[in-house]
Simulated scan of single mutants.
Amino acid sequence: MTIQIKRGDNYNQESLIGTVNELFYTAFKEKFVYKLFSEEMTIRISSLFSEYICKNKPNLLIIAEIDENIMGCAFMINHKESYYDFKYLIKKQLSLKNRIKLFLFFSFFSHKVTKEELYIEFLSVLPHYRNKGVGQKLINACKNQAMDKKLTLYVAMDNVPALRLYKKEQFQTVKTESSRIGKFFTGIKEWEFMEWWAIE
């Protein structure tokens, strides 16, 4: 099984949206539907966010595929990125109530990126392809793109497989954060903020 890694801007953006939507939905469904959104609204939000990153940020989207079948992706942001276009998009598509809930949701997962870092917003692999080295390939691609910057991410402390993978890839825990409010709305109380630096 040969895993190929490509950047999102190597694809037709329209054709990429559906698969990225599936990957984003796979990664965030349980958090979205825990308290804040119905499954139907979660599908809608996932579709909007996937459309946004595929059309506006494909250069920061890393894709893993086998035999031209996409099975994983990672999305990164730097300090210059903003979600202005996404906010404009959802303003046209979602009710005020759902926009407020969405901003509340993202507040639990937001991170202010510095000039010295590249931040992994999310990394997702389809369930059938997990434990096959896809996540590792995606992380290595993110490392290559980080160059002289540090690579950072948040991971839920109860996500043991992900924690094990990041530690294997030399990510170090910088701090642990806990939120009762986050637990109430997303089902996740504790997170680790991790970083990786290239070894000279």
Rank of each mutant, 00 (worst) to 15 (best):
Q4F: 15
I5H: 01
K6C: 15
R7V: 03
G8S: 13
S15A: 13
L16G: 08
T19D: 02
N21F: 11
L23Y: 07
L23T: 03
F24Q: 11
F28W: 12
K29L: 06
E30F: 11
K31D: 04
K31G: 04
K31W: 10
F32W: 13
F32A: 11
F32T: 08
Y34K: 11
S38Y: 04
E40K: 11
E40G: 11
E40F: 12
M41W: 12
T42D: 03
I43G: 15
I43C: 11
I45G: 01
S46E: 01
S46D: 00
E51Y: 04
Y52T: 04
I53Q: 00
N56H: 06
N56C: 09
K57R: 07
N59V: 10
L60R: 08
I62F: 02
I63E: 00
A64C: 03
A64F: 01
E65T: 02
I66P: 01
I66Q: 05
D67E: 07
E68G: 13
N69D: 07
M71H: 06
G72Q: 02
G72A: 08
A74N: 04
A74F: 02
F75V: 14
M76S: 08
M76K: 03
M76R: 05
I77E: 11
I77P: 12
I77T: 15
N78I: 05
N78K: 12
H79I: 15
H79Q: 15
H79M: 07
E81L: 12
S82Q: 05
F86S: 01
K91A: 05
K91M: 07
K92C: 08
L94F: 01
S95E: 02
L96P: 10
L96M: 09
K97S: 02
K97Y: 01
R99Q: 08
R99F: 05
I100A: 13
L102D: 01
L104C: 10
F105Y: 09
F106M: 09
S107I: 04
S107R: 00
S110N: 06
V113E: 02
V113A: 06
T114S: 11
T114N: 10
T114W: 03
T114G: 07
K115E: 13
Y119G: 06
F122Q: 15
H128C: 05
R130H: 00
Q136A: 11
N140I: 09
N140G: 08
N140M: 04
Q145F: 14
Q145A: 13
M147S: 15
K149P: 01
K150Y: 07
K150E: 10
L153H: 06
A156L: 04
A156C: 03
M157S: 14
D158L: 14
V160F: 14
V160A: 13
V160C: 09
P161E: 06
A162W: 12
L163D: 08
R164A: 13
Y166D: 06
K168R: 04
Q170R: 14
F171H: 00
F171Q: 00
Q172K: 01
T173P: 04
V174E: 12
T176S: 10
S178I: 09
G182W: 12
K183C: 13
K183G: 13
F185V: 02
T186S: 05
T186C: 07
G187T: 07
I188R: 14
I188D: 07
K189W: 07
K189E: 10
K189T: 02
E192Q: 10
M194W: 03
M194N: 01
W196S: 07
W196R: 02
W196Q: 04
W197K: 14
I199G: 10
I199H: 04
